[in-house]
């Protein structure tokens, strides 16, 4: 607010003066809102304390929904890793200039809103969409009204997630791969390792940091997504994100929505902790 005033204070001695506005902002608009989630999950519609929302989390419907979200997120993260790692490997071996171009080429689709991208995918795979028309014109589908049902299949939902999140997997892996000293690959080859052995024992362990950040960057949006799943399934597949959206926007049930969001947060924190631990231990293993 009074930026010029705070700047006049010797910045080396009083950096907190400079940070005052920022700290205020973070407390007011990050910390307090998150505390509200905790508060709302413990009250009912009238504002009195209740455990109903927490019990609601244990209901079969919600547990199934969490399970489904985890499975979809894990599957799409795995597909992203399997498709993305080879691509990252190829890019990292390119000359620097082409690397920059490739990184740009991979990131540009991300600048189309994911709503539009998902909407387009839905139109392509619709019962009467481009793919089905193509199949008809190639006479793979015999009758005029025949179509392959893509909408609502787990395959299409995972495809939608992979399509939306793949760049988040590729870019960090490319970064970590380009940071590896090339002489290590040469040394490995000179010492008689086959390309596969080099990949398994040199390249993969050394790019672990990139793999882990890639997995996190795909898993977090995938497990909390709500638009992709509901659009590509026509509303038949409900993930936890869909449940939260409905609770807040359609049912105005802030308490249930908060409880669901809280679990989502915990879930993500746990998976990040596991990922970090897993990563560190293996890095140590390599060092030994």
């Amino acid at each position: 607010m009074t930026k010029t005033k705070t700047l006049r204070i010797d910045h080396v001695k009083h950096p907190m003066g400079l940070l005052s506005v920022h700290v205020f902002w973070c407390v007011a608009f990050i910390v307090i809102p998150l505390l509200f989630i905790l508060y709302y999950m413990m009250i009912d519609g009238n504002g009195s304390l209740t455990l109903d929302n927490i019990k609601y989390l244990g209901s079969k419907e919600i547990l199934r929904c969490f399970g489904r979200s985890l499975i979809y997120a894990a599957a799409s993260t795995a597909v992203c890793l399997l498709l993305g790692y080879p691509l990252a490997l190829i890019i990292s071996r390119m000359p620097t200039r082409r690397q920059t171009t490739m990184n740009m080429l991979i990131m540009i689709p991300m600048w189309v809103s994911f709503i539009i991208r998902t909407y387009t995918i839905k139109n392509i795979f619709n019962d009467n969409g481009i793919i089905n028309q193509l199949l008809r014109s190639m006479h793979i589908l015999e009758k005029e009204g025949d179509f392959v049902k893509f909408l609502g299949t787990p395959g299409l939902i995972i495809f939608g997630m992979v399509y939306n999140f793949l760049p988040y997997m590729v870019v960090p892996i490319v970064t970590s791969l380009t940071g590896i000293d090339n002489r290590l690959f040469e040394a490995s080859a000179d010492l008689g390792a086959s390309p596969w052995k080099t990949l398994l024992h040199v390249t993969l362990p050394l790019s672990r940091a990139g793999i882990i950040s890639g997995i996190t960057m795909v898993f977090v949006p995938a497990v909390s997504t709500f638009y992709i799943s509901s659009t590509l399934s026509g509303g038949t597949v409900t993930l936890i994100g869909d449940k939260i959206e409905t609770a807040f926007l359609n049912e105005s049930n802030f308490s249930r929505g908060s409880a669901l969001s809280f679990v989502l947060m915990i879930l993500i924190i746990i998976s990040m902790l596991i990922m970090n631990k897993f990563g560190d231990r293996n890095v140590e293993g390599v060092a030994v």
Binding site: I37, P221, I244, L264
Partner: peptide, 8 residues
């Protein structure tokens, strides 16, 4: 996740 930031 964006949804958590949004609802908070």
């Amino acid at each position: 996740p964006d949804i958590v930031t949004g609802i908070s």
